[in-house]
């Protein structure tokens, strides 16, 4: 038995999507612009793309690079952020470096990286890595800094070494904050994935999108936007599930309805 409030809550994200598509449909019909297909036309083009083997291979290649970039970034950034949070010297060394890199759009570095590493997977994965790293480092840093000193003292009294305290106390205690950073990182990974493929056209979801744009296939362009958006929602929903499970012990938080929870 689902209560009316629960029903509304569950239906809300679906209603929002339908609402958005309706507005799109109306706007497109009113504007009557060739480069602005209706929502229905765009949706119709989705199965065409997903049914095409070539396109599917491209999209999967994108996702593979994204997973690589994201994974390596997380493995690199969490330990660095935690060390920065617990050691003034490490923080003093890395903070200025990160402040220099932070405002630079990572895609702007692509042409240079392309010169060094070519237009292949390595360049794109590296750009995704750069895009994901900063928020994860930042949130790990903040999370580690906020760990209660007395909690570490309690661990020290039990005989935990400094490294054990970092892995077994700082890491779990900072996990809610770290995962917030990872969630931001995941969205950024998707964004940098598309932008990297816009700059280094060779394969990938971004390549399909921009090729279609060049050829004036606007329904395909918008269909790709829908597909990328849907990938974002799905990835975020999956991540949110994992996150909620890992930090069940921390305070419950209200969330955006994006996750379909």
């Amino acid at each position: 038995m689902i209560s009316p409030t629960a029903l509304t809550r569950r239906a809300a994200p679906v209603l929002a999507c339908i609402g958005l598509l309706a507005v799109w449909q109306v706007a497109s019909l009113v504007l009557k612009n060739d480069s602005f297909p209706t929502a229905i036309e765009a949706i119709r083009a989705v199965p065409d793309i997903l049914g095409d083997k070539e396109a599917l291979i491209n999209i999967l290649a994108s996702l593979r690079r994204m997973a690589m970039g994201f994974g390596v970034a997380v493995l690199f950034s969490i330990p660095l952020g935690l060390l920065m949070g617990r050691s003034r010297a490490v923080a003093a060394f890395f903070n200025p470096l990160l402040m220099v890199i932070y405002p630079v759009p990572k895609a702007a570095l692509m042409p240079i990286i392309m010169l060094w590493l070519g237009v292949g997977d390595v360049t794109k994965t590296l750009v995704i890595f750069l895009g994901v790293s900063l928020p994860v480092i930042y949130h790990s840093f903040e999370g580690a800094k906020a760990v209660e000193e007395k909690m570490l003292w309690s661990g020290a009294a039990m005989g935990l070494s400094p490294l054990q305290r970092l892995v077994r106390i700082v890491l779990p205690a900072a996990l809610p904050e770290i995962l917030t950073g990872c969630r931001t990182g995941l969205v950024l990974a998707l964004i940098t994935m598309i932008t990297s493929e816009m700059i280094a056209r060779q394969s990938g979801a971004g390549n399909i999108l921009f090729n279609a744009l060049d050829m004036g296939q606007y329904d395909t362009v918008f269909a790709m936007i829908i597909i990328v958006g849907a990938m974002g929602i799905c990835l975020d929903a999956i991540f949110e599930r994992i996150r909620a499970r890992l930090v069940r012990w921390s305070e419950p938080q209200f969330d955006m309805p994006l996750s379909f929870s």
Partner: peptide, 15 residues
């Protein structure tokens, strides 16, 4: 471990 602290802030491991 020969000296066991108990703090005002409890300092339990919340996870």
């Amino acid at each position: 471990p020969d000296r066991g602290p108990v703090f005002q802030e409890f300092a339990l491991f919340p996870w």
